[in-house]
Amino acid sequence: MSDSNPMHDILTRWKAAFDGHLPDAMAELFTPDALFQGFDPDVAAGREAVRAYYDAVPERRTADVTVLHTYTIGEDAAGGFADVVFRDPTGWQAPVHLSLVLRRDADAWRIRQYHVSRISTEH
Rank of each mutant, 00 (worst) to 15 (best):
R61M: 10
W92D: 06
T31K: 10
D40M: 06
D55R: 14
A34C: 13
S117I: 07
E59P: 05
H8K: 14
P23Q: 09
P23S: 05
A17Q: 08
W109S: 08
D9G: 01
G20I: 03
F36H: 14
V84P: 02
L29N: 00
F81D: 08
R110M: 03
T12Q: 07
D9R: 08
Q93K: 15
T62Q: 06
D3K: 07
S99D: 09
V84S: 02
P95K: 12
F30P: 07
D40H: 07
D88W: 01
S2R: 09
A34D: 02
T72W: 06
H123T: 10
Q93Y: 14
V57M: 08
L35V: 05
I10N: 06
V101D: 10
E48K: 14
A56P: 00
P95A: 13
G38A: 00
N5D: 15
S117G: 15
D83Y: 04
V84A: 04
T121G: 12
T62R: 03
F30R: 10
V57Q: 03
A108M: 03
L68W: 06
Y54I: 02
A106G: 02
S4T: 00
A45P: 00
V50Q: 00
H69P: 01
D3S: 14
V116D: 06
A106S: 00
H21L: 01
A52R: 14
G38N: 02
T66C: 09
H8L: 14
L22Q: 13
D64H: 07
P58I: 01
R13D: 13
V96T: 12
